[in-house]
């Protein structure tokens, strides 16, 4: 019964979470903490910290962690499946719609019309992330150095390498 409820809750979360990982966390807070009481607010902040410290999308991390917390391995599998199933349904529906109606000119106008808003959402996500993670002058320097390193023309530095360097720098700056 718990597994079925977990599945339904995460289907709702997956279908309703617009605009990235942080809105997923807002949805989880509502569904899992407020409605079902499966985890407490204190556990939710643990969850957010772990979801951020683990590689991968924050929404998937949060779903897996909540599912495991509520009902073990089966719960983790059910929550992750429930969270990603709406994505699969919506994406394939959109692919079919676009391939059927791609010859209509207004589809092309519509695709172009969405782009400025999408840029806006990405900008908002970057600013939100920056506000949370840039907390002092060291962080400003690290972020600026990363931006500069990535902007060097004709030199493609792998971003993962930079994140790793940032982490090591973090140990020296904040760790001792």
């Amino acid at each position: 019964m718990t597994l079925l409820n977990l599945l339904i809750s995460f289907l709702i979360i997956g279908a309703g979470a617009f605009g990235g990982g942080y809105s997923t966390i807002t949805m989880i807070e509502h569904e899992i903490v407020t409605v079902h009481g499966w985890i407490t607010s204190a556990e939710l902040s643990d969850l957010i910290a772990i979801a951020q410290m683990t590689p991968g999308p924050i929404g998937v991390n949060a779903a897996t962690y909540t599912g495991y917390h509520v009902a073990g391995f089966g719960g983790a599998a059910v929550a992750t499946f429930g969270f990603t199933l709406p994505s699969i349904i919506f994406c394939f529906t959109l692919i079919r719609l676009f391939s059927r109606f791609s010859s209509l000119p207004w589809i092309a106008v519509l695709k172009k019309s969405v782009q400025p808003a999408v840029v806006g959402l990405i900008l908002a996500a970057v600013l939100t992330y920056g506000r949370a993670s840039i907390t002092d002058l060291y962080a400003v320097i690290l972020a600026a150095a990363t931006f500069t390193a990535l902007s060097i023309p004709n030199k493609k530095i792998h971003p993962v390498l930079l994140i790793l360097c940032g982490g090591i720098a973090g140990i020296f700056i904040y760790g001792f």
Partner: peptide, 23 residues
């Protein structure tokens, strides 16, 4: 936690760069 703090600041720079070049 210190590792994560440094890594997050780097990610902020990475995201800003992506947003800039992509937009």
């Amino acid at each position: 936690a210190a590792f994560l703090r440094g890594a997050s600041a780097t990610v902020a720079g990475l995201l800003a760069h992506t947003a800039f070049t992509m937009c």
